[in-house]
């Protein structure tokens, strides 16, 4: 099974129960507005939030758990990892606090304990401990309108397309998260354009880790090339200089 979440914004009533359940399940401290907060309501102590879009549409902001996550590929100490089950999880004992994951995430999801002397990166982990033992995430369990549901990614994708096909006038003909950046585990369907959740991110693009792959693959070749080139050059120049001095001596 590939764990996933499908959110149907046409069903969401904006009651915030998912965010409250998330706080309880993950033992997150009460939150108060801080200088460093982003506008989408996520913070080190709020791992999911309900964002109001156009026409009183409510959409969930949370980690997308990308199939090819940028955060995992850039973490220099491997503190973030994509589990076989689907969630992208964080091992705080490995983290050294470089915040590259926060820079790399195209959705701007990971948040930081800016007010702590010992800070960690904070984000949704799809309630990994609960789903590993056969449960479902706290947010989907708490949703009273069944607007956000948990299940297998393929089944949920099929369900999303079924809903769009059943009521074509009610939905925008797009499943957000199906192909974006190589696909994500958290997918949404909506009656409005959901790009307000991740403003500068164009839908349907290639996975981000590919962008650095070429440069990283070139590293060993570049090193060998430079070292060999320099050594060779030095050998040639030395020989020439030797010949010159010998020539002038004679």
């Amino acid at each position: 099974m590939k764990a996933a979440i499908l959110t149907d914004t046409t069903k969401c009533i904006g009651c915030n129960e998912c965010a409250i359940a998330c706080k309880k399940a993950n033992h997150l401290a009460p939150d108060s507005p801080r200088r460093w907060d982003a506008e989408d309501g996520l913070s080190a102590r709020n791992w999911t939030s309900v964002v109001e879009g156009p026409n009183h549409t409510y959409a969930r902001q949370q980690c997308r758990h990308c199939l090819e996550p940028a955060c995992v590929s850039v973490c220099p100490v491997g503190a973030l990892s994509k589990t076989a089950l689907g969630p992208v999880v964080y091992d705080q004992s490995r983290c050294m606090g470089c915040r590259y994951c926060m820079m790399a995430c195209a959705y701007g999801i990971p948040r930081y304990d800016w007010d702590q002397a010992v800070p960690y990166v904070r984000k949704c982990i799809l309630c990994y401990d609960r789903i590993r033992t056969g449960g479902q995430p706290a947010c989907t369990e708490a949703c009273p309108a069944k607007a956000t549901i948990f299940g297998d990614r393929d089944e949920l994708l099929a369900e999303a397309h079924r809903r769009i096909a059943a009521a074509p006038g009610q939905y925008v003909n797009q499943v957000w998260g199906e192909h974006d950046l190589g696909g994500t585990s958290v997918i949404s369907i909506s009656n409005v354009d959901l790009s307000f959740l991740a403003p500068e991110h164009p839908a349907g693009s290639a996975p981000l880790p590919q962008t650095t792959a070429l440069a990283m693959h070139a590293v060993p070749f570049a090193f060998t090339g430079v070292v060999a080139g320099m050594a060779g050059l030095n050998w040639i120049i030395n020989r020439r200089m030797k010949r010159q001095t010998e020539g002038s001596d004679e």
């Binding site: 590929s73 100490v77 050294m96 606090g97 960690y120």
Partner: peptide, 24 residues
């Protein structure tokens, strides 16, 4: 100063992620 957990800077020697440019 910039690292949140500077005392963990040595983790880069032990925990490897060769995909990361920062690791390199």
């Amino acid at each position: 100063f910039d690292l949140g957990l500077p005392w963990n800077i040595w983790h880069m020697i032990v925990f490897w992620n060769p995909h990361s440019p920062l690791f390199e």
